[in-house]
Design a protein around this nucleic acid. Structure first.
Lengths: 151, 151
DNA sequence: TCCATTTAGTTCAGAATATGAACTATTCAG
DNA sequence: CTGAATAGTTCATATTCTGAACTAAATGGA
């Protein structure tokens, strides 16, 4: 039996390490999905996060990067034809990002396989998988991080 | 109620986005913990992943980076006095990484607050939090990614 | 109504982190 | 015993990132 340290036993530590592990392995599996044109890790995360046009600042927060880094990523994807910038209807400082048809196609390619590769990474039975999904939904709702159209 | 697209509804998509969201926000909260000496994002992930000496190749996989990138990170932390390299007892190609006293102190600083910041990010009640922890434990065990001393 | 402050996104210089190829040393399987 | 595979390192280069400073626009308080 492996030796344990005091902090190995806390639920906070196990959650932290478990989330990190799951995230890393999902990331690796998602990376194996062939998309045309090929997308970087950040690009894949971004297109998944755009089910409808969203503000750039919000999306930067969603990805966990600063605005300058996000601007560069958006520039690349705009040049590539994967997304486009749109003016915000109410705030002339702000821009929305929307996927082009090409971007929607790439997003759909990822989404259609999501069930498969989540299952392959988690290895959970259907009941536990449903429970995990529910808990993650609750966490996102608690923090107002569900996607909503701007309004 | 927000409009949904077809793929927004699948449990795979919700899990993928939920894990990404939770990971990003845990990462941001962990980043706010003051540690002496200051540690980069990868360094914090690394010391958390070393409850006992572990092989470099394994740890590179755990962090989701290539071996060259991992070598550089280990070099920096070794220079800084946070960890040290040890010879593998059975395999002269392999190196183990172990935390120094300084590294253990930094790790403990993170671990002691893990419960608090996991709670602050997830916002779950005790029952749901226990269930989330259990599910993440199951996922790690399923894939042989629980920490074990080499043997 | 005016104005100081704040916010959204961009540009820039530079830092941090990453990869693939090629390498050495070592292990393993046939 | 030997060829193939593995563990980690070095190197050149690519990718991604940040903070400061900026412009344009919105906001709130006097």
């Amino acid at each position: 039996m492996s030796p344990t340290t005091l902090d190995e036993e806390t639920w906070g530590v196990r959650t932290l390490m478990g989330v990190h592990d799951l995230y890393t392995r999902l990331d690796q599996v998602v990376e194996e999905v062939n998309i045309d044109p090929p997308l970087s890790r950040n690009a894949r995360k971004l297109i998944v996060s755009i089910p409808f046009p969203r503000k750039m600042g919000e999306l930067a927060d969603t990805l966990g990067v600063t605005k300058p880094a996000f601007t560069a990523l958006a520039d690349d994807l705009e040049k590539q034809g994967t997304l486009r910038r749109e003016r915000h209807p109410d705030d002339r400082r702000a821009w929305l990002l929307a996927l082009t048809e090409q971007g929607e196609t790439a997003r759909r390619a990822l989404m259609l396989q999501a069930n498969h590769f989540v299952q392959s990474v988690t290895g959970l039975n259907a009941k536990d998988q449903a429970e995990l999904t529910r808990l993650l939904d609750v966490i996102r709702e608690t923090n107002g991080n569900t996607e909503c159209p701007y309004s």
